[in-house]
Nucleic acid binder design. Structure first.
Lengths: 224, 224, 224, 224
DNA sequence: TATGAATGAGCGTTCATTCAT
DNA sequence: CATGAATGAACGCTCATTCAT
């Protein structure tokens, strides 16, 4: 019990608010910089300059570049989780609900390429930062749970196959959404076409939706 | 494996052979280092040390770090292309051929995570290196072409739907294969399960194969 | 041991007492840190952390790192002086008194290596802090005075030589005591033996005592 | 066996010589800077500026600040050893020989305060650098050996006591020499006199010589 | 009396690269 | 063909200290 126990007594003061703003300002800048340049390429100077702050403040607020990156990851996971929670599709109409989920996933990744890039960066580092976060399991199951409920409802209504794991369907949707954004640059070069035109995006969404629904629907005989 | 690999075949002298070996030695090391640490994290020194050579030789052979990275990308594309060419599935049995393609894709990415990591790195850099390569279109269409032939054959035999673009099917397969390897670390933390056990890999392959076949086969009524 | 030491005796209020405790808490931590890391290596942060206080308090109480170091030096000098004053050997039995002084000196340095280290640090800085202290002459002469009295008594009793300066005898004793502690690490490496075993310490004390007594006693013909 | 085996073939070339000079230039500057400012206070920038070189070269030649400091320690030990070897007093006249040793020791420390300061710095760091040096035992025994020979000769001639350890005599001399230089600043403040005047130095040398000779000579009855 | 926030300068070290032969 | 020497800029981080209540 040291001398610093008088925090948060008389309501959040002006200074505390300013400090909070400073912290979040840096966090926001760091998210952009890490997403654009990766972890090694994203120097603390780039971050502090974008935040119109000073290198020193990063250490004041976060202690280290690594901790800052962890905070960035926690932030993007949390925001994705919150966005996902807002969708809340009605599982009682499972086909529509599944379409909603697919569209959300495709849209979210496409509109938040930073999220994708940061996840790639974290995978380059073998997940060492998420494993240090302490909150890794916190946002995990929502997306899979939602799909599980939709699948269960569809099975109940005789619309969907009963032999599917929600996790696999989740991975299929996530794969299609992720890859399209993650690899847009090399794919463009590889395929020789633009992938981010409205038409291309719309075509991909239709195709993925169709594919997922064909995968889950009940009446088909075994595919093989 | 030092530079004394004797690849000095058809007419090249001893010195040219040694030079060639030195060059490839560095290229091999660079592939590993860039795959492990990314472009910024993969320092010239790390590469030259792994190659048991000297920093200076990288400039001697490749001129710059960027050129070396371009050479690395060309190398992994070329190897993937060669591997793909070797598969050569028999399009006259389209279902089996498609299964072969899917299995190859899943296997290749899983066994060559360096390929995946390097592609992520290149996408982080918005594809600037591939666009400088001069060979970008060279290996591109093979994979899509193969699928196109299989689809055409399947349509001809009344097995597959006629309204599909080979490119979309290719992207679906590639997505499923790529994502599973690319995001294995964050997925493990996110889902709380191991993805690289033989059972998990086998399960994923079966699911993806099933999903693709359900997507392409002819007899299904519209999914929606 | 936090700041709640109740030294608030004769008339000082509770707040003054708390302040005094906070000050001394920092001073104690600073003594340890400077002794261990030197002046430059002993950062303000290390000190405030060890004191479970904050950097800012150091400036609050001492104004600057330099002033804090001066306070540390004053503290160790004062404590040594107090310890020396407690010994108070009986000059009327000069041989025993001298032995007592020698043993005290050897013991004190050996048991207070921080004192030795801090003096080395101050000498590295050419004594600039002691010269700023304002109390430098305060504790100085006691040790020499005590020896002077012992020598005088010995001379009077015909036991000691009359041609010695107390200062030289003091320096001889201090040298032997100081060096043994100050250089224990390099000496161990240099000589290849441990110097801090009880036997080694005892041997050194016996030797030094013998040497000093041979130096001061009266009956010997000139040494040269 | 890599490509770097062609060193030192055609005699030390011009470039190698220049490189050697650069290395030694830095080493010389580092010795001064570390002696003056200690290890932590002796920044690489101070060193490279004094050497009219660049920070980077320190890492090119020595790899780290710590390795540079180790090299500095090795250098001063080696020079002291060489100087000691040059003295080579004639043990057949043991009194004169001992005087020579004492004078050398006092002179060497007084004229090389850097040596003393660097040893203090190393002891502040608990001897971690000498223990990493790999040569620590190399220069050790000479000084003690020389004294051992002198003592043996003196005993043989009936001049010296037979019950002394050379190590103790060595330590006594070293203490007196070291302390006088090491603590000159605090001693001056403490005693209120200058210690580096010719008279003071001469007085101290005479006193120490006298004391050591009284300690070692044979005809005295036990001191206690 | 007491303290969280903020700071510019400097730290040891590594970066990709060029020089000179 | 091959390479040891050299380099300026940037890196992540820590320094002693002051600001603003």
């Amino acid at each position: 019990m040291t001398q610093s126990d008088k925090k948060a007594v008389r309501g959040t003061g002006v200074r505390e608010a300013a400090a909070q703003a400073g912290r979040e300002n840096i966090l926001r800048a760091a998210t952009k910089v890490f997403a654009r340049y990766g972890y090694d390429g994203g120097s603390v100077e780039k971050i502090s300059k974008l935040a119109k702050s000073h290198d020193r403040m990063i250490y004041y607020y976060f202690g280290s570049k690594e901790n800052l990156f962890i905070a960035v990851l926690e932030g993007i996971y949390q925001r994705m989780d919150e966005a996902e929670a807002k969708v809340a599709p009605d599982a009682s109409t499972p086909v529509a609900a599944l379409k909603t989920v697919i569209r959300f996933k495709l849209d979210y990744y496409r509109r938040n390429p930073d999220f994708v890039t940061l996840l790639n960066t974290e995978n380059l580092h073998k997940g060492r930062h998420v494993s240090k976060s302490g909150r890794q399991g916190e946002y995990s199951s929502h997306a899979v749970d939602i799909i599980a409920k939709i699948l269960a409802s569809g099975v109940e209504q005789g619309l969907f196959r009963p032999d599917l794991k929600a996790r696999d369907v989740f991975l299929l949707i996530a794969s299609a959404a992720y890859f399209y954004t993650s690899n847009r640059y090399t794919l463009s070069a590889f395929l020789g076409e633009e992938l981010d035109t409205p038409e291309a995006v719309q075509n991909w969404e239709a195709f993925v939706t169709d594919s997922v629904l064909r995968t889950v629907r009940a009446d088909a005989r075994p595919a093989i």
